[in-house]
Amino acid sequence: MPSLPNSAFLLWTSDFGAGHRQTALALAQALEEMDPGGEIEVMDVRQMLHPRLYPLLKAGYRLTLEQLPVLFGQAYRMADRYPLSVSGWYGPRVQLARLRFKALLSERSWQAIISTTGYAAMVMASFRRSGALNAPVATVITDFYAHPYWIHPGTDLYIVGHDAVLEGLRTRGVPRERIVTTGIPIHPAFESAAEKREASRRSEQAEGGSTRPLRLILMGGGWGLFQDLDRLLGALDRSRIPLHLWVLTGRNAELQKALSARPVPSPHAVQALGYLPPEAVADLFAVSDGLITKPGGVTLAEALAVGVPMFLVHALPGPEEENARLFVSLGLAETGDEHALVRWAEKLADPTFHEAWLTRAKPHRPKEAARAAAKAVLRLIPTSLY
């Protein structure tokens, strides 16, 4: 496609959870490919708003998730039940953001502004609703639930990961024409990993099946937030099937160090890996047999795209519980206690289990979600050829 004249796109994100940023970067890359001459800015909304306080705010958020997740869940549920409480709670901060961002939004002619976090979506919708912003605004919902935190009058387009979210938005009054289901935008490496995984699976089947240990990945999100990891590993130690375990500890260096010095030897191979870029994670997904993970929306989207069966643990009260509820109801994931975990791991050795999972997953696996989302954004622009 020829470049739009003087095109500029602003993508708001947040490092309060790695998924928001990964989604923004994936969408930015797709926009760059589809509009090569366009300028693309990816900015952290909270860092721009509170540059000096940002490290403290981020540390406080992480501490809340680690020590007081129930409070997070209670706030989420209250806002779900009483949507007006969202605007009431965030109202003063929205006004502050409008004062801080007014110059930024007027300094150039933005073709479109996209938010991958609910707070930024709220602020941009406020600008749009008041007539202070001419550029269309889009929101990419990075969970699999239509929570009021994401829904704000003035938003031109909602980009969602599943039709269940579309229906949830419609139930909450969003017009159908303002919603598009593309899948959550993810790094293109995960699309390539799906092809590698399928080729490897066909090769093993042609050779009469695999005799290697089952390869499982354990993930605790970008911050490596695991509860009772020793209990999970202890349960897997009881598996009768040989396992090779990759534990992705994210940016949690203390956890990686503790795992490397685990006092009780495992009958299985256990490898602790720190933070990995998306390409490296995708490579692991391509050769793994299953994923044990917290149900963050972007992680689930990545695993689904590659074709990796999932067992969900340690759901954060609120959004991750809703993500887990949908994936379990669709037969895309399992959850339960350590006995259920061992049963799930042992089922992975049965080729018919994987075939049945792929059959269930097929209608829910979007192709090239980032490009589809970028195309939806470009369609908001009158001069676009899409």
Rank of each mutant, 00 (worst) to 15 (best):
L4V: 09
W12I: 01
A28P: 06
L31M: 11
L31A: 09
E32L: 11
M34F: 14
M34N: 12
V42D: 09
M43E: 14
M43H: 11
D44W: 03
V45E: 00
L56A: 12
L68T: 14
G73T: 01
Y76D: 00
L84G: 03
R93Y: 13
A103K: 08
A125M: 06
F127Q: 02
A135Q: 11
V137Y: 03
I141E: 11
D143I: 05
P153N: 02
P153H: 04
G154C: 01
D156L: 02
V160E: 12
V160R: 03
V160G: 02
L166Y: 11
T171E: 11
E177M: 13
T181K: 00
T182V: 12
I184H: 06
F190E: 09
E191S: 15
R201M: 10
E204K: 14
Q205T: 14
S210W: 01
R215V: 14
G220K: 03
L232P: 00
A261Q: 15
P265K: 06
L273V: 15
P277H: 09
L284C: 03
A303K: 02
P317R: 01
E322W: 13
A324G: 03
R325A: 14
V328I: 12
L330W: 09
E338I: 07
V342C: 01
D350G: 04
H354L: 14
A369W: 09
A372F: 10
S384I: 06
